[in-house]
Write a protein that binds this DNA or RNA. Structure first.
Length: 648
RNA sequence: GCCGGUCUAGCUCAGCUGGUAGAGCGUCUGAUUUGUAAUCAGGGGGUCGGGGGUUCGAGUCCCUCGACCGGCACCA
């Protein structure tokens, strides 16, 4: 029999007969390794212990101690065990696919009846039975025709379609345990008992389109999470609880920041405190942009369809625009307008007023642009995904040569904004030319290089996202990480030669001839609405002092203190601090609790002693201890603290 | 938009198989002058998301519309 040579991670090689399995390799090393082994890595591929190895290869044996492969197996096996449990309970349910996802897995089923939350408990119970049975897992490679015939005979049309989509040169693997069979690329455990019975949980049922295509069948997807240990599962569940506590919709109501109602779906009624955050953030961005060399403009909300036709948006996004028809008696003809869904075409109109010289470029034009988009009802989500929103939008008109410097400048700008707002970490995604595109290859080369060099110049890492750019140019997306590790895509930087072309933007070059400028679309926050939602969740409502809508409550302990309380509030207000009095006839305990729940960062308590000594007793949100300070020093300190980070 | 779920007082939620609505907190009134996460007592408050139907009778059953929630699809 032919021999192959396997190289281990330590660099040593050994010869084995061709077709040896990782299980046999592990056995050859030691019995204990054979017992601990769960899978292998063979030439970089995650390899089932049962799969034969046919050629020379690098090999590493994985045990449960190897997190990534262990979790992949646990989650993937869990998905399969769930599918088997479902088919054992309801034999007529059709199975489709069940991949591993972050923290767990899902499996999509086709079934007439909807799954109920009670069903999930039943499925979980059956899954535990399967795990406890420790059924051995067996695998085989099948011929295509045989596999297709098998699934046609057993009435599993989705599996047939899956097989037909698998490239001809890939092996079709079948897996079995306990008489249940599934097509699967593997790898899997050796027996069902290797899945920890107490470290998984089925979470919820949701609809999902077959193959992600909204024109095809709606399946039922069951989501589950799975970990190595019960403790890991518990930690995950408490993280979810923590996220639920931070939910901006809950905090928005509790802190009385905003509300939404049926009559204006996807639009926000900002209450005084919410609007304070909004204006504070907007003032900050306005100062930042001014300092960053932007000019600010403002453009119309209702714009004739002609402009949207010219920009190309009418064709592509008409469905998602709010259309306004004006049909006045005096109007010569009915005019059809759209609420602006974006600002760029209007900015080109501003640019086009007066002939521009190359000396004026780069021209950085910013607008806090209020936009309206008719988002599909199912897409709406709190204040994060809405139909009426305001972008921190800007367009930089520049020459091709200026793109690199403008890009680098923007990355620096954005990092400084994120840092000021409490986000230290962000990731850059670099999306390059797609299949379908316009423009010359030279131009793509040049622009992509410009972006890449700009990123490198700023010293940031980036992740390549090949083929994901717009049809006219590459883009950068900026994703920030919040306090509990969630990732939000907020910033963007997009190179666009197309819109200036369509809307006839030009500048006069050094040579006296007309040239086409590039347009760079860019935003840091994305939309104020969404970003405030992110801020609320990131800080769990406990916003940094300068952004906190109610910065200080001055609370009386006895009514004799009322006059002095008013004096303290006045002093703080004059010093630029948002302060209010609480002289209600309540105990200090009650007031402290109420304002703590309301996330007020500082409570100043005033009793007889404070009145006498002209001091205050200061207590910070979340802290038990208090400190007695003079009126003068507390005013100065809090005034300093209230200054926005860009003004410090 | 699609699948599933939900909608009862300002908020959080009870209300079994249909028999004309309840609690806690908040609000209001009174008492209490209080020292760092809820003082006590009393009062008011809902055409049960909108509309239609079945029924002697509907918060409860059916139809329909809407909003919201979890996903999917979408996100210029």
């Amino acid at each position: 029999m032919a021999q192959i040579s396997l190289t281990f991670p330590d660099g040593n090689s050994r010869d084995f007969p061709a077709g040896v399995t990782p299980a046999e390799v592990a056995e050859g090393i030691s019995t204990s390794l054979r017992k601990k082994a769960i899978s292998a890595r063979v030439n970089g591929a995650h390899w089932d212990l049962q799969w034969p190895i046919g050629t020379d290869a690098r090999i590493a044996i994985h045990t449960l101690a190897d997190d990534a492969p262990a979790l992949e197996l646990i989650r993937h096996d869990c998905a399969h065990i769930m599918a088997r449990a479902v088919q054992e309970i309801w034999p007529d349910v059709k199975v489709t696919i069940g991949p591993v996802i972050e923290n767990g897995f899902y499996y999509d089923f086709d079934r007439e009846e909807p799954f109920t939350p009670e069903d999930l408990g039943r499925i979980e119970k059956k899954m535990r039975e399967i795990i406890n049975a420790r059924d051995p897992v067996r695998t085989e490679v099948w011929e295509r025709d045989r596999a297709i015939r098998h699934y046609e005979d057993s009435g599993e049309p989705y599996k047939v379609e899956l097989i037909e989509a698998i490239p001809g040169d890939e092996p079709l693997r079948m897996y079995w345990h306990g008489g249940w069979q599934d097509l699967c690329r593997g790898p899997h455990f050796q027996h069902t008992g290797q899945v920890p019975a107490d470290a998984f949980k089925l979470m919820n049922v949701a609809g999902a389109y077959w193959r992600g295509d909204s024109d095809r069948a709606m399946l039922q997807r069951i989501y589950g999470v799975a970990f190595k240990t019960k403790a890991d599962l518990k930690a995950h569940l408490s993280m979810l609880e923590e996220a639920a506590k931070r939910d901006h919709r809950k905090l928005g109501r509790e802190m009385n920041l905003f509300h939404m109602q049926e009559e204006a779906p996807g639009q926000i009624f900002w209450h005084p405190d919410g609007w304070t955050i909004y204006t504070e953030l907007q003032n900050y961005m306005r100062r930042k942009q001014r300092a960053g060399g932007y000019v600010e403009v403002n453009t119309p909300q209702v714009v004739d369809r002609k402009l949207w036709e010219a920009s190309g948006h009418w064709d592509k996004y008409q469905e998602h625009m709010f259309i306004v028809e004006v049909d006045e008696e005096h109007a010569r003809e009915k005019s059809i307008n759209a609420l602006k869904p974006m600002n760029c075409p209007c900015h080109v109109q501003v640019y086009n007023q007066g002939l521009k010289s190359y000396r004026e470029l780069p021209l950085r034009m910013a607008e806090f642009g209020s936009c309206n988009r008719y988002e599909p009802s199912g897409a709406l989500h709190g204040i994060m995904r809405v139909r009426g929103f305001t972008q921190d939008d800007a367009h930089i008109f520049c020459t091709e040569e200026q793109i690199e410097a403008e890009c680098a400048r923007f990355i620096e700008f954005l990092s400084s904004v994120y840092r000021d707002l409490g986000f230290e970490e962000f990731e850059i995604m670099f999306a390059t030319r797609p299949e379908k595109r316009v423009g010359s290859e030279e131009s793509w080369d040049h622009v992509e290089n410009a972006l890449e060099n700009a990123i490198k110049k700023t010293g940031h890492d980036y992740t390549l996202d090949p083929g994901e750019g717009a049809f006219y140019g590459p883009k950068l997306d900026f994703k920030l990480t919040d306090a509990i590790g969630r990732v939000w895509q907020c910033g963007t930087f997009q190179v666009d030669p197309n819109l200036p072309e369509r809307l006839g933007a030009v500048y006069i070059g050094e040579d006296g001839a007309k040239h086409r400028p590039y347009m760079l679309h860019r935003a840091c926050l994305g939309s104020f609405e969404r970003f405030i939602g992110i801020l609320i969740e990131n800080w769990a409502g406990k916003l940094p002092f300068w952004l906190a809508p109610r910065q200080v409550v001055v609370a009386s302990i006895v009514s004799e203190a009322d006059e002095y309380v008013a004096e303290v509030v006045a002093a703080l207000t004059k010093a630029g601090v948002r302060a209010e009095a609480d002289t209600r006839n309540e105990k200090i305990n009650y007031k402290v609790r109420e304002h703590s729940v309301g996330k007020v960062p500082v409570i100043l308590a005033i009793g007889r002693k404070e009145v006498e000594d002209r001091t205050v007793t200061l207590r910070r949100l979340g802290e038990k201890q208090t400190q007695v300070v003079s009126l003068e020093s507390v005013t100065a300190d809090l005034a300093a603290e209230a200054v926005a980070p860009d003004l410090r």
